[in-house]
Structure formats: C-alpha cells, structure tokens
C-alpha cells in the first residue's frame, strides 16, 4: 500500500440517532484494507467519540481519515463554540454536556480522554467562538 487513501464524511449535527455512521463506515473500510483488528478498534473508538462530541457540542462538522504506510490520521473539524480550557476538558469526568445528553449515555467526561487513550498522537486546536479541529493518529 504505497498510496495515501483518504475518506471524507459530513457529520450531521441534527440527528443524535445517526451519530457514529462515519465511524461505522471507517471500520468497514479499514477491514477491507486488511488493517489489524486492534488498530481498527482504536481508530473507530477514537473517531466515534469525536463524532459524538461534534454532534453534541458543535452541530456537526467534517471528518477526514487518511491511511498512510506509517499511520492512520483522523481529522475532525467543526464550527462549534470551541473549547474554553483544553486542559480541563482533558480531565476524566469533566463535562459540559446537558442532562438530556447524559440521559442518552454520553457526557460522562470521558470522550476526549478516551480519544487520547486510544491514539498515539492527538492535538486539539480550538478557538472559542470559531470552532475546534482535532487531529489524531494511530501508528501502523
């Protein structure tokens, strides 16, 4: 596999029910490429958490996944409210999600820590009032 493969998804912010569809599709795509199950699981969980976050906090956004020879890169970008204090947001248990989100099983303050836990590299670029771009990589 010498070429870089890229996949793009529009993450719909209107429908919590359909959140996660991009991650499901990526999981299928990576399986077809013969990537190891452990790597696929790490990529899809990290992306799924990010997708859920985009739906909960930012009214959706864009998800781009690139597969290179060295790593799989996931870039999630939105035009939501941005993250005021990234260090605080990275703490397990910290959450700004509403009660209605919690009642749907999310908003436990584990999303960003989980994304870091399952990836080898993660960078958060966020400007309050403009949006957030999260870049994650899982090494192959």
């Amino acid at each position: 596999m010498s070429e870089i493969l890229t996949f793009h998804f529009d993450v719909d912010g209107d429908d919590f029910t359909s959140a996660g569809q991009a991650s499901v599709q990526i999981k299928k795509n990576l399986r077809q490429l013969g990537i190891s199950p452990d790597t696929i699981r790490r990529v899809s969980i990290a992306m799924y958490e990010g997708e859920i976050n985009m739906v909960i906090h930012a009214d959706g956004g864009d998800a781009d996944v690139s597969v290179t020879e060295e790593y799989i890169e996931i870039v999630l970008s939105d035009h939501g409210p941005g993250i005021k204090d990234i260090n605080q947001a990275m703490q397990e248990g910290f959450s700004t999600a509403s009660d209605s989100i919690r009642s749907m099983g999310f908003g436990a303050g584990m999303g960003l820590p989980n994304m870091k836990r399952y990836t080898d590299y993660m960078n958060i670029d966020s400007v309050v009032g403009e949006g957030t771009t999260i870049t994650m990589r899982v090494n192959l």
Partner: peptide, 12 residues
C-alpha cells in the same frame, strides 16, 4: 437508543 448498538459495534 441506537448508540448502545454502535458502542457495542465499536468495541467488537
């Protein structure tokens, strides 16, 4: 809700 199934799917 449907995210229960998606979560399970992500975790194999």
């Amino acid at each position: 809700n449907s995210q229960v199934i998606r979560t399970a799917e992500m975790m194999d």
